[in-house]
Structures are given as structure tokens and as C-alpha cells.
Design a protein around this nucleic acid. Structure first.
Lengths: 294, 294
DNA sequence: CCATATCAATCACTATAACTGATATATTTG
DNA sequence: CAAATATATCAGTTATAGTGATTGATATGG
């Protein structure tokens, strides 16, 4: 039983036929048939039921399937680990919440890419659930999502721990005043923004359901919209303090239970992170502490 | 890069030389040299530094090493999983604390072996630390140890949760009377008994240090020794209640914080348990609930 | 300092295994 | 019943792995 045997086995199982597998593997059907047969002989048990429209896995074949996938993945990881000499290089595919990318990561993209010109950086975005699935399916090496994430195959490392505050037009003295307005609108960065859900929870808890939503592409526009009294928004405290003077908008703190949101780096437990990923994480973390120290 | 390549690689790395590896692998040196070279070419980086006394791993080789081991282990597991059709058969190698084996498991050995004549059962004993290492090194498939065990590669399933009690000669009315005797001796099943350590803690907490120890091979002897007033012992409550009448010895309960000890089944997170192991665990657990129901 | 031992690299050769292409056989589909 | 689509088998070819002898380099011990 060898890795190439398992590769062939996996192909046959996935495609449900030896002809199709042969085509995928750029070989001929007789070769596939023979090697599967040899594998079955070696293991002492049939792996496929043959029928006129192809083959299907036997119970033994089903048991072998996850191992075939594991072997393939590990060989891939091994090749990557050997090639990776500590200098970030090659493809780096990460995932992120769109909000996190826009608010936290974007400032690092250019410097990262220029620091490590041999890295091909790709960022995919989605909800935390989608990101989690991407990590599990190895579509991305890791992802920045909203914690906590609980899955036996995943590990999460905290990256940002943000205190959220509500912004409103300057006229409002406290949260009660803000929520007193019957036609309060939510101003959010993106429809799928993770803060939006959190904000809805906050509003719901105060008896305000499904408020109308305004969506803008940049923070500046959001803040100026809020300043103009067209709605309220919820943003990390640290972003607010530095970027805009508090004169334009009123900042309302929330109870700590509602205010805290943790951004975590999600990655597979069984996969070593590439140098490129480590370097990017370091850069992001360093940016955070630098910002916090200001 | 194939499993056989990695097998050869691992052999060379472990033995520190291609000649030695060739001998181990029942082939010739030139073959090993050529295949290592081919592997290095394929990966685009040297894996070994050659010197006059053999070879040593380069940084890239060191990175490959754990993957080579993983591949070997997974192939082994895969073969076992495919062969294992759900009926317990083949080798079953478990570990256990000696005390647990003697007090809890022994009653199941004969019935298990007669129920599943195709299983070759092996039991190895040691301390929880030793058992944990055995599981990590794959010397045993799983082990019954003293919880909690915390290791990222291991999982633990609770099996027994026992309340420990102290046994003394019938004359003593309570624990204070027992500990009032200056020459109190500990009677234990084995020197390495896990309960011994617990008992020492209990005694230490009451100002009694390094008591003298009496060691006997069977419970019956221990209890009769205690009954004769030669010392005290600490045993699971459930064992005491049924096996001996309370007339012979005095049973002293401990505060719940000290009294509880949990036996867990320790196994690798990344390895599927064999049908034989599952069957044995089931039998042990069933025995427990049956006993608890009495 | 030299004989010897140990080690990896190279190379021509052999043995083995993997692969190919043609053919056989079985089953479904129109 | 013919056509399409499967897998199985087999003889022949190709590619790969393994062998044995040789070379050159480096230590070790007298």
C-alpha cells in the first residue's frame, strides 16, 4: 500500500468508476483495474463493488477513504514544509471577515507584499462560518474570524480583542437618547458585516427590531453619515479614538458584556503554518501593539 | 514523493547513514543513495549533509522528518482500519495502572478473551505518566490511567469515577482516631499504585509524612492485614461494600475533594480505536453500570 | 605516514513493476 | 438486437527500482 495506490483509489472512489479515474490520472483503464486489484489483494479485502455503471465503495473501502485523503494532504503539507525555508515565499491564501480586512488588515497588505515580494498573497472573504469551512477544506491556510470557534480539528489564536462602541450624531448625550428615536438606522460597512449581527442583537435587546440599514464602503463615509444624524453605527473603540476627532460624533460605550468582540486567527490543528502566514500574522500583531502603545 | 521514499528517508535519517539504512531495508547502498538523490531532486533541496562518517539531516530534512513518521503511522492505521470489519480480531495492546487492572479489569479478561477468541490481548502496566508516553509512542492503542490527563494529541474518556475511602481496624471510630496513632502504616497493593500517591497526600495534609509501607499482592490480604490492625489502606468505596462485610474493618469516608479519583481511557486523538478496543471498553463499562445497579 | 576501514557517488546491468493497447465479457439503454 | 459503457484479462513494452563492482574521499590505528 503506497501513496500512489491510495491516490488511485481515491480517484476511483470519488469518480465512481475506473474509466473516469483513468482519464483523470492520465493513464489507461486496464492500469487502474490492475492496481486496484493488487491493492485489494494486498489488503485481503475488496474495496469496491463492481456493477455495470461503474464501482462503489464497500464497507472496507469506506473505511480506507479518510486515510487516502489524509495521506494526500500530508504529502502536500510535507512538500510545502520542506520547500519553506523560513523565508516567506510562494502562495499564501488567507481568509478574513470583510470588516476585519477593511478595518484591520488593509493597512498591512502593501507593506507585507513589498517586504516579501516572493509571496503570492490571496485573500478570500466570508462569514465566520464560511471561513471556518474554508479552513477545514484547506481552501485557505488560515482565516481571521469572529471568536469563539469550537471545532476539534481547529485551533484559534486571539489576534484582536476589540471593545465596540456606538457612534451617533453629537446631539445625543447617552444611549437612551439614541434609542429613543423611533426611526434609528444602522449604518454598516457591508451587508454581511459581522458587527451588524452584533449590533442587531444590541438593538433587539432594547426592543428595536429590524432597523433600516444604510451601507457604505468606507469608514469615512460611515462616520460622516452618522455625524450628519442619518443613523448610528457600531465600531471598535480603538479605531474611533484615533481616526476622527470626537467632536464630529458622540461615542457611547456599551456594557462590557455586549461590547467585546474577539477576532481570532483560525487554522487547522494538523497543519503547520507557512512562514508566509506566520510573517503576516506577526506583522498584523505588531501593528496592533504599536497602535495600542500610541 | 512517495511513501516508500519517505520510509527510506526516515531510515537513513534515523540510522545516520545510507549503508546502515540499506542493511535495515534489505537492499544495497547504491539503491538508497540513488533514491535519496532522486527525492532531493524532486523536492529541489538537499535533505542530508554528507560527511565521512555518514549523513546528517539538513534543516529541510529536519522539517520533513515528522511528516515521514506521520505517513508511516497513517498507512499502518489505514491497513488496520480496512482489515477491521467491526468484529474484534487481531492484536489488542492496552495499558493500565496495575491497580486498575487488578481491581477493575481482571474480572473481564477471561470473558473478553473467550468472547473474542481471534483477539490477541496484551496488557502493559505502568504509572499514568508511563502509560501516557506509551500511548503517544503507539506502543499501546489506549490505556486506563488516572485523570485528568492534558495533552494536545490525546483524548480521555471517563471510565470509572470512584470514591475512595480509608479502611482501618474495626476499633477506630473516626479518621481522627486513625491518624492519632503515631506509627500508622500504609498497606498498598503495589509500590507504584496510583492510590498510594493519593494516600500520601491525604496523610501529608494531616501532618503525617512518609509513613512505612506494607505491600501485598491481593486485596484479600490487604484487607485482612488492615483488619488485624497492622495499618490502614485506601480503596474505592464500591469495592469495599460488596466484597467484604463491614464487620471486619472500619470504613472511613474522606472529604469529597480528597476522595474522588477518576479513571480515564487515554488514547490518541488522531487514531481510530480498533473494534477490539471498543469491545473491551464496552465490556468494562457495562460491567461498571451493572455493578452500580446492584 | 601508510594501511585499513568506512562511507557515499557513479555506472552498467538486471529484475521487477507499472503501463499500454487490444480484446473479452457483462449489463444497460433505446 | 445494436450501441454504449463498464470492468477484466493478457501479452508486450516501457519505466523504474534494485544490484554489484568501482571510485574517491575521509577518518582511524599502528
Amino acid at each position: 500500500m503506497d501513496a500512489s495506490d491510495l491516490k488511485m483509489f481515491e480517484s476511483v472512489a470519488r469518480l465512481g468508476g475506473m474509466n473516469r479515474a483513468a482519464e483523470e490520472l492520465n493513464t489507461v483503464q486496464s492500469n487502474v483495474t490492475q492496481r486496484i486489484k493488487r491493492l485489494e489483494d494486498e489488503l485481503g479485502t475488496p474495496l469496491f463493488d463492481r456493477h455495470s455503471r461503474g464501482v462503489s465503495l464497500t464497507a472496507a473501502g469506506k473505511r480506507l477513504m479518510p486515510y487516502a485523503r489524509d495521506i494526500r494532504n500530508i504529502l502536500e503539507d510535507a512538500r510545502r514544509a520542506v520547500t519553506d525555508d523560513g523565508t516567506p515565499a510562494g502562495p499564501l491564501i488567507l481568509g478574513s471577515l470583510e470588516t476585519t480586512a477593511a478595518l484591520r488588515l488593509n493597512q498591512h497588505f502593501t507593506s507585507f507584499v513589498s517586504s516579501w515580494p516572493n509571496v503570492d498573497f490571496t485573500l478570500r472573504t466570508g462569514t465566520t462560518q464560511e471561513l471556518t469551512d474554508m479552513v477545514l477544506n484547506r481552501e485557505v491556510e488560515g482565516a481571521f474570524g469572529c471568536g469563539p470557534v469550537d471545532h476539534p480539528d481547529l485551533l484559534t489564536d486571539p489576534v484582536f480583542n476589540e471593545q465596540l462602541v456606538i457612534l451617533s450624531a453629537p446631539g445625543f448625550k447617552n444611549l437612551d437618547d439614541v434609542f429613543a428615536r423611533p426611526d434609528v438606522r444602522m449604518v454598516v460597512l457591508r451587508r454581511g458585516c459581522s458587527y451588524r449581527q452584533r449590533m442587531e442583537e444590541v438593538l433587539t435587546r432594547r426592543g428595536i427590531v429590524t432597523p433600516r440599514i444604510l451601507e457604505f464602503g468606507t469608514l469615512e463615509v460611515i462616520v460622516s453619515t452618522v455625524a450628519a444624524g442619518l443613523g448610528i453605527t457600531m465600531l471598535p473603540k480603538t479605531l474611533v479614538g484615533h481616526t476622527w476627532q470626537s467632536g464630529n460624533v458622540a461615542v457611547h460605550t456599551l456594557p462590557s458584556t455586549e461590547a467585546s468582540v474577539e477576532t481570532v486567527y483560525i487554522h487547522r490543528r494538523d497543519t503547520r503554518q507557512s512562514s508566509a502566514a506566520v510573517a503576516f500574522l506577526d506583522m498584523v500583531r505588531q501593528g496592533m501593539t504599536a497602535q495600542a502603545a500610541e
